[in-house]
Design a protein around this nucleic acid. Structure first.
Lengths: 333, 333
DNA sequence: CGTTTTTATGCAAGCGTGTGCAACAAACGT
DNA sequence: ACGTTTGTTGCACACGCTTGCATAAAAACG
């Protein structure tokens, strides 16, 4: 038996006894078509199960309706949340998200963007990694919109959405200071992601200005398990820190858990902990983590609305601020 | 200034001084083209930044390379994990995942499948909700493959991947019994998802066979916060349960947290807790939740391999078993 | 009723590909 | 030398759709 095939506009045209353009117009908002004709077309389409072929339509209109999300480690709570919000808002403007997973090293961001071009995606949104300039140039030259989220670097013609990480980190330091902490540490992964680096730098910068020394520890991927290791390293130092700013809530959860369970410390009495992202787990009563919330909804909104209406300015940069959510892992507040 | 446009095969043909079909053949594996010609084409393509238009190719080949993932609440750990695995494995067979978010009520599963048809997706994988029979029939009639994961219901021509929830739930009961628990409860959301229902039924069934009564409590969406409420309801009963089987790890986390922090109970000494899914958080040292692991990798593999090679049997059903991961939330083990 | 305006519809071209077919050249065998 | 095989290439059509253009029908107007 031969491969089944989708029903085309020709089929429904024949059945409705009209021309092929009539059915095309029926499914094109704003096109001129008589009520009677439309009715017959719709009827025939329904009976046959006809659906406009978006591939072919995209070919004609030069607009596929696809938007590429380029991301690694999708199962990370913050990323998953952002993807959810993006896909939802994209659907609101009748676009649809293509997911490209860049977990594997051989499938890096450049390749992902090439794929996006191959599929004639209307836009690409990069959440992980940093594409080469040559390839981003090709994107904008081809008329593909490009959004970089928390990528920090400049790219001509792209929309860059960044958090004010450095500033938030400074506020973190102040919070620790007010809580009476004197021996501070920064726990980071060794991923070297721009936003993580910025948080580290902002924190250290503020500390230096106040003449406070801060010990930095870096280890592994940006995950819970790394937080465990980081805590073990930090809490066995001869001078045990009484405050740890973690680059990430996941790290912070790992840090808190080992501080409590392995080192029998009380948070926040013996140790203050601050995180970043405000993932769902931070609000769970085992953590009550004080942390900075990323304005996920606003990020997605900025990105999507920029895609929807081509802004006139050629390149755009947008700085959002992270809000400090006070819970119970830092004294005072 | 006019809208920029992607470079087409005609452009690179002109530049390379060959016919358009030559460049098409160059990018078609196995096509007959002279080394010299191929070289010139590749050179020209590189210089111009040419990428084969997958939309047009899909139109010709009647195979878009797109696979639709239909899912709600993507940011749930288990779902996020599954999506990650699916997208990764799809990429391995040169397919690409389209994400359709069915969070919003007005954008339900049927609409999602219609959208998948519009984009001529090679396949759709349904992780949430249950599509109407009429629409799934249209899918298979149109030659679109269909995979239902944990949907439980039968659909002609589709691949149905299901966990042996009922059986796992029976094992859960036995585990509680061995731990010496006599007063058992089942904590469920009121989502009514087939797998959640099956777990509840399996558990109650086993209890009935052993002459043990179990109290069932249902509340809210399948999330942490519902677990909190469920625990509050269950633990304030005149006869407090000494074992709670939760339909889900998220619920279990909520249950454990409130049992410990609000009711000052010790897990597993005062209360045994079992979960389902083995999300990452279950392994965190605040929980050490004993739970059933979904074979996420295997699920994705089954789905993807079925898409890759059309199995001869017309419809296929596949039952996988959940493995019990012993940690510290149940006595014994 | 004749003329102008409006509206609806079909025709055909075009979007960027893949591919069967024929043509052609080169290589090979005898 | 000639027939045969092998390999390469261009032409032209098909895929399913949109849309400008011309035309026909209907409506409006004097």
């Amino acid at each position: 038996m031969s491969r089944k095939v989708f029903v085309s506009a020709k089929d429904v045209a024949e059945r409705a006894g009209v021309s092929r353009s009539a059915v095309s117009r029926t499914f094109t908002p704003g096109a001129s078509v008589a009520d009677e004709t439309r009715k017959r077309v719709v009827e025939a389409a329904e009976a046959l199960g006809y659906h406009v072929n978006h591939l072919a339509r995209g070919l004609m209109r030069n607009e596929s309706g696809l938007v590429c999300l380029i991301v690694s480690e999708i199962d990370t709570p913050y990323r998953a949340n952002l993807i959810r919000e993006l896909s939802r808002q994209l659907q609101n403007v009748s676009k649809i998200a293509m997911l490209i997973n860049t977990d594997r090293a051989d499938k890096n961001v450049d390749d992902a963007l090439r794929l996006a071009i191959s599929y004639r995606a209307d836009a690409s949104i990069v959440l992980s990694g940093m594409p080469d300039k040559s390839i981003t140039d090709l994107c904008v030259k081809s008329g593909q919109r490009l959004v970089l989220i928390n990528r920090d670097e400049q790219r001509e013609g792209a929309l860059m959405i960044n958090l004010n990480d450095r500033d938030a980190a400074r506020r973190a330091f102040i919070a620790f200071l007010r809580a009476g902490c004197r021996s501070m540490a920064f726990a980071n992964s060794d991923a070297g992601t721009p936003s993580l680096v910025a948080r580290e730098q902002g924190f250290c910068e503020a500390a230096r200005e106040h003449g406070v020394e801060v010990v930095i520890e870096r280890f592994g991927p940006t995950r819970y398990q790394s937080g465990v290791t980081l805590a073990q390293r930090l809490l066995t130092r001869e001078k045990r820190p009484d405050a740890i700013f973690c680059a990430n809530d996941l790290l912070a959860c790992g840090v808190m858990d080992t501080a409590r369970h392995q080192f029998k410390l009380s948070v926040p009495d013996d140790l203050c902990v601050l995180g970043f992202d405000d993932i769902e787990q931070s609000s769970w009563s085992s953590y009550h983590l004080t942390t900075f919330a990323q304005p996920v909804e606003k990020i997605a909104q900025k990105a999507v609305s920029w895609l929807a209406q081509p802004s006139l300015t050629d390149d755009h940069s947008c700085k959002l601020t992270a809000e400090l959510i006070w819970r119970g892992s830092v004294r005072g507040g």
